[in-house]
Design a protein around this nucleic acid. Structure first.
Lengths: 116, 116
DNA sequence: CGGTTGATTAACCGGATGGTTGAATAGAGA
DNA sequence: TCTCTATTCAACCATCCGGTTAATCAACCG
């Protein structure tokens, strides 16, 4: 599977996006990442594997902990991909100022939380 | 399923992204869209349904043809989502923040142009 | 009407996905 | 060593996904 498809597929799950949002605040262990979710630790471990294979996180080792870290390069890639369609939504797409001004105020915030 | 997940899932397939790229050149019928691909028309029809449910295309009716049109709003959404992580890949981003804040009403800068 | 073209729907298949539980591995520490 | 904690692996299950072929719907045209 090509890189872009892997990344999009990894992002197509609210739990995984929530994990990324959490990692935007800094490294975290599997248990810490799993804590907010109503699913098993093993399920979270699988999600992390998907994110890792998409290149969205890396995992280190600290004793028996496996700290996860956000890797933003794939996000840059999909941003670039989407930006190639910008002319279809932004008539003044060559004026980025307004756009960036709105962006700079929003960090990745706790997104949807899914239940059940 | 939430909107963002639908869009990411729709984009996680190279055929569907190729269809979007084709539609960037203008409206097309199902047969026209299917032509480049080594799969059946029915498979393409399914792909179009996925894209439609994600809000990435709309379909009209012209006699027995169903012209497809690109809808860019979801792409704007995912671009905005990805951009919220920009500080993790763009070291100059924080400084760009400050720059823009002191520059709010001046003209267009020449940042980030993408082609595809 | 019947026939042809464009497109969708239905039924099916194999493989991937997201979840579970239970067992296994890795390291810290008494 | 034995135990506890953190994490992964394995097996299983239900559902989804991308593809197929066959059938159906919709609209034009002779």
């Amino acid at each position: 599977m090509d890189r872009l498809s892997l990344v999009f597929a990894a992002l197509a799950d609210p739990t995984r996006r929530a994990i990324l949002a959490r990692l935007a605040d800094g490294e975290a262990t599997v248990n810490q990442l799993a804590e907010p979710f109503p699913i098993s630790l093993q399920a979270v471990s699988k999600h992390l594997k998907v994110l890792e294979q998409a290149g969205l996180i890396t995992r280190g080792r600290d004793a028996q902990w496996r700290p996860c870290r956000l890797e933003a390069a794939p996000l840059r890639d999909i941003s670039a991909w989407a930006a190639s369609y910008r002319r279809f939504w932004d008539e003044r797409y060559d004026r980025l100022d307004d756009y960036l001004q709105t962006l700079q105020q929003t960090g990745p915030s706790e997104e949807e939380q899914q239940d059940g």
